[in-house]
Design a protein around this nucleic acid. Structure first.
Lengths: 112, 112
DNA sequence: GGGTATACATAATTTTGTTATGTATATAAA
DNA sequence: TTTATATACATAACAAAATTATGTATACCC
């Protein structure tokens, strides 16, 4: 899997948002969902994803449970209450950042 | 100066784009321009800006000349020909990344 | 003389990725 | 049957790209 250097800083936000929409997801499922939604343009690397999930859990934003399917263990993640608030906050940040970036890069025409 | 973690990966693009629009700028001027355009929401740190400028120069995308104003040295940067091509390429990347990110974060409503 | 603004630079550290590697099961192809 | 691909997790070594802190120096205002 390969990623975009621009991804930096947005991974946590992406994970939190997906869990807001889906309630319960496991790591591999997240990689596939991102791949699907972005038409293969953003591919999460496992070396980035799993540590990010562990950190979000350690920070109290996610909680986990495991389930065995086809003799393989899946570790499911869901938002905690705190995590729910964090999604809102991170999305606001992302929205604002995208706006500023578009302004700087002239990707959004100014009102004339 | 403090920054947004989301800034990661976009600094070079911002610099290159500003130099496409302005032809000649010096470091401090870039920080002020970014601050102005983003209403103070994105503040470039010097520890990020100067090394980024040096790297873009080392990569052949920028060339420099100095000028003394009020007894203080200013180091001006301008795009090289290669740098001109790089702007286009980086902007395409940024555009595409913003699109994917907005799709993932549901910041752009899907067509129904 | 002290604070703020202008103007550059770099070293130490931290954050956050990539790349590589490892373990393990399921399934389809050769 | 063994080999490749997909599923599923994890972590260590390394690199990139920031932040934070520090340093130098001038100009200007109070």
């Amino acid at each position: 899997m390969s990623t975009n250097p621009l991804l930096k800083g947005t991974l946590q936000t992406i994970i939190l948002k997906l869990l807001e929409d889906n309630a319960e997801m496991y790591g591999y499922e997240i990689t596939q969902k991102v791949k699907e939604v972005t038409a293969g343009e953003i591919m999460l690397t496992e070396g980035a994803l799993y540590p990010a999930l562990h950190k979000l859990e350690a920070d109290g934003f996610l909680e986990t449970f495991t389930q065995v399917v086809d003799n393989r263990v899946r570790k499911y993640y869901r938002l905690t209450e705190e995590g729910g608030k964090e999604v809102t906050s991170k999305l606001d940040e992302a929205r604002s950042f995208i706006d500023q970036l578009q302004a700087l890069l002239n990707l959004k025409p100014a009102i004339k």
